[in-house]
Structure formats: C-alpha cells, structure tokens
Design a protein around this nucleic acid. Structure first.
Lengths: 224, 224
DNA sequence: GTCTATACCCGGATAGAC
DNA sequence: GTCTATCCGGGTATAGAC
C-alpha cells in the first residue's frame, strides 16, 4: 500500500502537515485492515506514527471519519488501476482474459484493500454508503466489461444471457476469495492460496474460467 | 440458523441448563456475525436471552471461548450438509454441477456462517486453529470432489491440470462472494446478489462455470 | 444454578497550555 | 499545529448472596 495513494494536500495546510496526515492514513489502513473497525485502536495508530492521538482527532475528527478516509483512499487506488487497463487491440476473448488477470493481479497484491472490503461488508456497507465519491466513481468499472461483452455477443462467440455485472461478480469472487479467505482455507486444507509458486496457474485458471463460461457453446445464442 | 445445530448436552447438566446454553449460542451466533468479534457485546447477548451475563461467563468462561463454540457449531452444521450429498448415480459432469449447486444453496441460506468465516479471516484464523475438531473434520469435504474429478479425468472429459482443491476454491469463491460481499456490491452496483428473482440464474451459472472450466476442450488432456 | 452489584481496565474523545 | 494529562462511558470479568 505504498504506491500512489497520496491525496493533494489542502491549500492552507503546510507540507509537513500533509505529510503527517499521509503517515497517519498509511498506518490507519494497516491497523483497520488487520483488526477490523471495532478492533482497531487509535492509540496504536498514534504509537506507530510520528504524531500523537490528539493530532489524529485534530485532523480527522473521529475514529469513524478516519476509517472513512482510509476506505476512500483504497477505493481510489483500485479506480486508478481500472482506468489504466488497455484492451483496444484485443479480441473479446483476449480482452476478457486480460480483465480477469488484471483483477487477480490487483487483489493479490492489495491484501489490505480486500480486508477492508470484508470489514465493510460485516458492517453492511454502512460507511461506504456515506461516501458519494466511492458510490459515484467505482461503478464505472463495469463499462469496459460491458463493451467487451456486447462485442462478443454481437460476434456470436459469447453467450448472451450473462451480463457484465455477472461477469464482474465471477471475476471478483475468484480474485477476492484468494485473499479474503486465505487464512481459513490454509488452516483447513493446508494450502496457501497466495503461495507464489501457485500464482501463475491460478492466474491462468481465472482466465480459463471466465472465457470457458462465456464461450460455452451449450449456452451460446448463435451456434456457428 | 435454526436447523439442527443442537449439541448433545453434557451428562451432569440439567435439561433446562442445556436449553439455556443453546439459547445463548443461538443469540451469540447472530451477535458475532453481525458485529465482528470485537464489535460483539456480551451485554447484548445476555439482554436477548432469558439468562444473564453472569451465566454466560459461568457456562463458557470468556468471550473468546464463547466465540469459539459458536464457530465450531456453524462448521459442524456445514459438515452435516456436505455428508448428506448423494452423487452415486451421476456422471462426473452432473456430479460436479450438483456439488456446486449444493454449496451455492448452503451458503446463500446460511449468511451467518459466511459472515463468521469472514470475521475469522480478518483475525487470520487464529481462533479456528485452536479447534482440532474443525481442522480435523472439515477437510474431508474435498474427498467427494476428488473422486468425481478423478473419474472425469479418467474418462477423458475433464482437464487434468486442475485438482480438487482448485475446484473447491472456485465453487466456494463464487458461493461465498454472493453472501460475503453482498452489501458493498449492492451499494456500488445497485444489485442485490441475493435477490430471490436472480437466484435461479445464479444457481445455473455456478454449475455452467465449473462444468465449462473443467470440460474446456482447449485444456483437456485427451481430445475425443 | 441463578441473581444483583460491582471491580477494574481500556479506549475514544477532549481540555488547555505553549 | 503540537504536546501532556485526563475524563468518562462502557465492556469484560468477578464477588458473593441465595
């Protein structure tokens, strides 16, 4: 979580203060992700920062507001990744595989994001619903997927009874599960889903899965 | 979570006491699932039971021990479902679909189980690892899947580079996601994944997905 | 086994000086 | 903006009568 999460500092705030807020957010992200909302300790965040607890309340107002800022920061991060995906030159099949792999790559390298999403779901997305930014911006992720699927259906190579949200659901489910359920899975089955040795095959499998499902001839509208 | 979760009461405990402990566990399951481990309140559990807070500590010793009992109870429940699945008469393809649908059915009707698994993952499965029962018994879920896949590979209709744990992972990922990420998904994309109107198609989709992936001819060892 | 009352501590939030 | 010190609610856990 060190990559490009910085926000533009407010005008009236000194460079040092902005830096300090960044530090707090960095540490808070780790603390919330590791312990959940109620389990996270503001004391602990302060202890791991160069600032004090008093300053955290000065900057962010409350534990909940701090958590919300953390949430918006990690959602902004995945938005940037999504916007960077280029699929112009690819066939619908290749594009689908690339989108699936990009999601797999993001989630497997951003464990804290997945943990925060899990935590947010435990709390019925009550905080997320307070953030107009996330709700407005992050839904756009599927427009790319919509275009790819529409093209594939038009070309007669994709089934037409599964929409973009369904595909997004399948991709996210697979990619999330590797990270979100890593520990219970490893405890019961003795296999670490994030073992680097397994990642290439898991990365291929998500592409296979999505492509095979969408191209399944038994469900295709137009049989060639 | 009203179905058959009862444990056999200890010998020295009266019928009334056993019933009281069942009540506590029922309510505790809901409380932990809804608020996470740290967010759950023993006061609240006591308030929603006919017993008192003092009795909860008398019966279970600590909040953590209570949570562990809750966890073992829901894992015992899914074990019973898994053991009840019959696939003797089915082809490998049909068996795979049936197993996928059974998992989908269980998870979508046991929201609290999925929430508790999420919570447990937030805490790096530290509690789950203390339960020899869960670790010993729940790994057996894949033996059925192993047999089906071995048969399918032998008959040349399944690819042979995806093992039973991988398939279990795909099935669980899909089924878990519907429940675990329901709220963030609904908030962002305005679609409730557990909407009863969508369930038949989602139920078909998980079967299609698993069957298509395993039968994908481009990855099959023996091309017919 | 079941109750009431309470000890004790921890954590979020704030006061107020500089 | 930054610090130290502190309040105070509430949460886990227990004492002790019946």
């Amino acid at each position: 979580m060190t990559d490009q999460l910085s926000e533009v500092p407010d005008e009236g705030v000194t460079r040092r203060a902005a830096r300090s807020q960044e530090d707090i957010l960095e540490v808070a992200t780790a603390e919330f992700a590791a312990n959940g909302y109620a389990g996270a300790r503001v004391d602990e965040i302060a202890a791991r920062t160069r600032t004090t607890k008093r300053m955290i309340y000065y900057y962010f107002g409350s534990k909940e507001a701090l958590y919300l800022t953390v949430l918006e920061r990690v959602y902004a991060q995945i938005r940037r990744v999504e916007r960077g995906i280029q699929i112009d030159e690819l066939s619908p099949t290749e594009a689908l595989r690339k989108l699936a792999e990009a999601t797999y790559d993001h989630h497997t390298t951003h464990e804290m994001f997945i943990q925060l999403v899990s935590i947010e779901n435990i709390h019925r997305a009550e905080h997320l619903q307070q953030s107009e930014t996330i709700l407005r911006e992050n839904a756009t992720a599927i427009t790319l997927l919509e275009q790819v699927i529409e093209r594939g259906v038009r070309e007669g190579i994709f089934r037409d009874d599964v929409d973009a949200l369904d595909v997004h659901m399948m991709i996210s489910a697979y990619a999330c599960f590797h990270v979100a359920n890593r520990h219970t899975f490893a405890a019961i089955f003795k296999r670490d889903m994030l073992d680097p040795a397994l990642q290439p095959s898991h990365r291929r499998l998500i592409g296979d899965m999505i492509v095979a499902t969408m191209a399944d001839r038994r469900n295709r509208r137009t049989v060639p």
